[in-house]
Design a protein around this nucleic acid. Structure first.
Lengths: 230, 230
DNA sequence: CTACAGTATCTGGTACGCCATAATACGATT
DNA sequence: AATCGTATTATGGCGTACCAGATACTGTAG
């Protein structure tokens, strides 16, 4: 049996451990705001809410801690990590560097498939804005960058970006709701795609940087406007 | 009592939980080769070796898994992650992008303190090469980049670089042992410092990129030379 | 109203047990 | 003897119970 085919008939098992299910649940609960920043995450309460044992809950909390979504106060226990503005700016900066890098690589490859895939994602974003479906905007934006990275086989960088992105997810959901972002966001991304189509590596790099820089500026405004109200 | 002083007499407790101690131990054991890539990490064995309970061991394994140092085979359990060459190249590339970014920022800040701190680290590296103390070379190199990042308050990026670096640590220890690396490595780093001293952001960026590119090339050679021998 | 003691809460950590699965060894059958 | 089925073992996944230490809360005595 040839190597390429030998997995074809493999029986697909759920294979997800309880731990992974719980991890996804809690992470989602944090990123979509069910648990707010600063909330304490009491182990035994989580056990009850998730319907799993402390063993599982503790492993999940450790995992989220290493993702930066959960902070651990000594002798007090885990809380949902607070995002301070300085950290958010750094995250945006890193994303700029890595997404710029990926955009440049895409441009240098000069592959029509890449352009087509990016345009499809971009169309999805426009539609979601038109339908006012903000959740869809987020997932489509993610998918845009996902193709940007995976088309040039940069899955490690994609993992890094993804890891950082969850930490600023509530910021993202605020920035995209900003007035004019529905116009300017896709416009900036279009510039990236155009530069890639032209094979203009440097232009693609700068366009990607500009896009996250804009997002960062909006995030900073949103965050500094909200902090005093706390 | 004034706020600035009130922590002064605080009794410094280890504050490290058993879990963190165990985490460090296991990570170090992996990084310095006590556990080889592909080795199985049997929970109950680790309990015995570390002298801690299974709960702790499991949490440690989960943490290392999310760091990428440990891989979990379904229905078989955790093993030490194997590093394939493609992934290593991607990690070097990311480091290049981020270290270049940090170097540029350092140059733009034009602070003599930064230059002084970097020169001190660099001197440490040279001395370690002279003494043939390869472990010290590694830690001093880390400290060089640590100052590069923290001097411009980019601790998040530093965290990312650090996280990625542990995954290629055995590669690092092989590349620095390469002939001529003891000359060329410090020379490339000196170029970074010089550009920073000149306030030449672009030059610092490129010098940092060149340095990791060189390391990456050596690593690739080392890795592809070793793989067939497996 | 304050100080202090007692109490409740919660994490950190341990021990132990049960179950499911995968691999291996072993034995039976043809 | 080769093969097939079965017991055994190793191990991870998961749950429960328990204890110690730190912290926060509370009520009472002075």
């Amino acid at each position: 049996m040839s190597g390429a085919l030998k997995d074809a008939i493999r029986v697909e098992r759920p294979a997800k451990t309880l731990r992974e299910l719980a991890l996804d649940k809690v992470r989602e609960a944090i990123v979509n705001g069910y648990f707010r920043p600063g909330d304490r995450l009491v182990e035994r309460d989580l056990c009850a809410q998730l319907g799993v044992s402390r063993t599982v809950v503790r492993e999940v909390l450790r995992h989220l801690e290493s993702e930066g979504l959960v902070a651990n106060l000594p002798n007090k226990g885990p809380i949902v990590a607070q995002l301070d503005i300085e950290e958010a700016k750094q995250i945006y900066e890193i994303r700029g560097a890595l997404e710029g890098m990926a955009a440049r690589l895409c441009a240098e490859r000069r592959s029509p498939e890449i352009v087509a895939a990016l345009e499809e994602s971009l169309a999805g974003i426009r539609n979601s804005y038109r339908d006012n479906d903000m959740a869809a905007v987020l997932t489509n934006t993610s998918s845009f960058y996902h193709t940007l990275f995976t088309m040039v086989d940069r899955n490690v960088a994609w993992g890094v970006v993804n890891l950082l992105t969850v930490r600023i997810n509530h910021l993202r959901s605020m920035t995209i709701k900003t007035e004019r972002r529905g116009i300017e966001g896709p416009l900036q991304m279009l510039k990236i795609v155009d530069a890639i189509r032209r094979g203009d590596g440097e232009g693609a790099y700068r366009a990607a940087m500009d896009h996250v820089a804009a997002a960062s500026a909006i995030a900073e405004a949103v965050l500094s406007a909200k902090k005093p109200a706390d």
